[in-house]
């Protein structure tokens, strides 16, 4: 079983990395990897600066900056897994060959998610480094809790990969506007998980959605690991200890993992029945 996993996972991760990176030379790839996330975070920096005379909290700046930087992982891993189904089915027209190869499709998707994780890590690293060097984000690498950071990162990436497999499986059965699915869920999570503002600002009726999202707890853990005591000024999850947050995130990851297993089987069967594995929507 382990050999079957290795036979699928590593080639898929390698293939994904090639698809993401070999369209150009390394320098342009590096610029491309930096440009989008830096521009995205600069929007928030300039929004902050435009109104910073109105009595704003500097701790909020770190909250917004880090949330936006770390959210790159959500788009890359979760939405990216859904896109990889579309890439293989519609653009490279290779999904049908993958289906007849002796591999496991969920493991293949995990491998593609790993490639997205690598490109995402490059973007997150550049954004956070730029934040420390140029934008006065109060992160002190020597004071950060790195074991907690990497533990939370690993759990979060697992959860995002499970969510990506769910979206990828649903994407298999979509004929119209399939590329919007990953984007829709990523956008919704951006709003509800408190990535760039505390979810207590949401209308009271919408706040429970935020508390059901694993990303809410994941982002809180990552912020606490990087900002240390500076993150205590964000009241949303202040009552939760680190252990409680890890517990909730682990439970949600397990839940999404199980859901990914069940839904993949369901949507895979539907896609086969409807002849969607080699469908062309000409998107």
């Amino acid at each position: 079983m382990l050999r079957a996993f290795q036979r699928t996972f590593f080639p898929a991760a390698w293939l994904g990395w090639q698809v993401e990176s070999n369209w150009t030379d390394p320098l342009i790839f590096f610029v491309f990897s930096a440009l989008k996330p830096i521009a995205s975070v600069m929007i928030l920096v300039f929004m902050f600066n435009a109104v910073s005379r109105s009595g704003t909290d500097p701790a909020l700046y770190a909250y917004i900056y880090l949330g936006n930087a770390l959210y790159i992982y959500v788009g890359a891993i979760m939405a990216g897994t859904s896109y990889s189904i579309l890439d293989d089915r519609e653009r490279y027209r290779a999904l049908k060959y993958l289906y007849i190869a002796p591999i496991s499709i969920p493991v293949y998707l995990l491998g593609r998610a790993m490639a997205r994780f690598m490109t995402g890590t490059l973007a997150v690293g550049i954004t956070i480094a730029a934040g420390i060097v140029f934008f006065k984000v109060p992160i002190h690498p020597m004071r950060a809790n790195w074991p907690m950071f990497f533990a939370a990162l690993a759990l979060g990436v697992l959860c995002l990969a499970a969510m990506g497999i769910i979206l990828g499986s649903i994407t298999l059965t979509l004929r119209s506007e399939p590329w919007f699915l990953g984007e829709s869920v990523a956008s919704a999570l951006y709003l509800f998980s408190g990535a760039i503002f505390p979810i207590t600002l949401l209308p009271a009726t919408l706040q429970p959605i935020g508390f059901l999202m694993p990303m809410t707890y994941w982002l809180e853990l990552m912020r606490r690991a990087l900002l240390g005591s500076g993150s205590a000024s964000f009241p949303t999850l202040a009552a939760y200890s680190n252990a409680s947050l890890f517990g909730i995130l682990a439970a949600l990851t397990l839940g999404f993992g199980l859901l990914a297993f069940i839904l993949h089987r369901l949507f895979d069967r539907i896609a086969r029945d409807k002849g969607m594995i080699d469908a062309q929507s000409n998107f």
Partner: peptide, 23 residues
């Protein structure tokens, strides 16, 4: 897809300005 999604993005930025007590 083409009205709700941009609206969600807009909402996120609106809440950022609200968090910053912007005019």
């Amino acid at each position: 897809f083409e009205t709700f999604l941009p609206f969600v993005a807009v909402s996120a930025y609106v809440f950022v300005y609200r968090a910053l007590n912007a005019p």
